[in-house]
Write a protein that binds this DNA or RNA. Structure first.
Lengths: 230, 230
DNA sequence: GTATGATTCAAACGATCGTTTGAATAAAGT
DNA sequence: ACTTTATTCAAACGATCGTTTGAATCATAC
């Protein structure tokens, strides 16, 4: 009889985090009250302030819990690629797959809340004045810095501004593909999103096609090597 | 002396709408209070409820004010293309330009609030439970329906699911390119976004590259006609 | 079994929320 | 001049917000 009076201790923190994660995704930070969180987690109202200090500190912890591990995984994937290549410049498709494949992997994890978190992350990207954004950027800076550096190295003839912009576009397409599925359903009525495994090759084809697209205007095209790489 | 006591009448509505639009973009719907709106617009607190009825009704009006005109403009651009082609299927690039060019046009309008609104729209796409999303979808349904139908007609060999997904990805890249500029700045430190005119060709190259990318897995490629269309 | 530290509990705090009210003021009609 | 209508104003409403408090309850060590 543990679930009746719900006073089982150390799992309270994670129950709060899970409930907050889902509610933040559905209703936003301001639209989610402490009472909604504690009610959904079946803990006392004061538990959040006891375990985390404040609502803002809880929000931070919701992100750090997942982001740190995810970016570490990304960097490990990049290091593995570099070791396999002996330090030589990588193919752009491999770099893109290492970065965005990690996102999609977590978004495909429906059982452990990964999908919920990635949707929350996607909607947080577009919040201009939230204190969370500044802190997310710091959490991301090392990872994006290293991946961009590898992209620069792999595309030596392409202006860095163009690479940066296309990386940005890829981030947008990916975030939106994960966070904006409701919008898609409403655009198109019912459609088949029941198989998240199909999303990965679909999105990857789109991302790599966009990355390889001819540069706008006066600028030279991407090197031919990348036009056939899969 | 009109600006002192600010009781000049019919412009109150639009002053409220402008202030609300900016504040909703910066802080979200729940993060923006009636007092913030009326304070920023220099009107009395009760003015919103008098002119619009409620906060929710104000939110709706913020969107209808711009969306109706924008989608009408999109459909007019599509009709113009169809008339020029004599009803024959259009090139996919033209369809994409007609749809997303209108978005980017409004996003480039810094003086009349178009940029602010497009950022607000982008962040609203990712809000799952907001009542605004249902209502935006209705406002969009005719327009996206017709554009998707033209895309299907212009790509007869491509499965409709794939076209729908790529349209979704293009929406994401565009929304994020507009709404997520802060995220990009934080990823990459300072960078040149001072010239919004350059965004258009950059994004178009990316979108069309993604649209033309080889289809994933077992499925056949896009017809060759589209691989060189600009 | 009793003292100690960690956690949970019900209750309340002041602040702010969206909305309503009724009087005051401005503009227009006759 | 008076009436009518539209708009603005200061003030207040109950509800809900995040947070705090002090007692109650738990687990553990002596």
């Amino acid at each position: 009889m543990r679930e009746s009076h719900a006073k089982q201790g150390p799992e309270t923190r994670s129950r709060i985090l899970d409930a907050a994660e889902r509610l933040f995704m559905e209703h936003g930070f301001d639209g989610t009250s402490m009472r909604m969180i504690t009610g959904s987690a079946n803990v006392n109202l004061a538990a959040v302030n006891y375990h985390f200090g404040s609502k803002d500190a809880l929000i931070q912890e919701v992100f750090t819990r997942r982001l740190t591990a995810m970016n570490k995984e990304r960097l490990a994937a990049l290091d593995a690629l570099l070791e396999a290549s002996g330090g030589e410049p990588l193919k752009p498709s491999r770099i893109v797959e290492a970065f965005f494949g990690t996102s999609l992997e977590m978004a495909a994890d429906n059982d452990n809340g990964g999908y919920i978190f990635m949707r929350l992350l996607g909607r947080t990207y577009t919040e201009p004045n939230s204190f969370v954004r500044q802190f997310i950027a710091e959490e991301y800076s090392e990872c994006t810095g290293r991946f961009l550096a590898e992209l620069y190295r792999s595309l030596p003839g392409v202006p860095r501004d163009e690479i940066l912009w296309r990386f940005h576009f890829m981030m947008g397409a990916t975030s939106y593909a994960i966070a904006g599925t409701d919008a898609l359903q409403l655009f198109a009525g019912k459609f088949d999103d029941s198989d998240p495994a199909r999303l990965v090759p679909r999105l990857m084809s789109f991302l790599l096609g966009g990355l390889r697209g001819p540069l706008p205007e006066f600028q030279e095209e991407l090197p031919v090597e990348h036009r056939n790489a899969a």
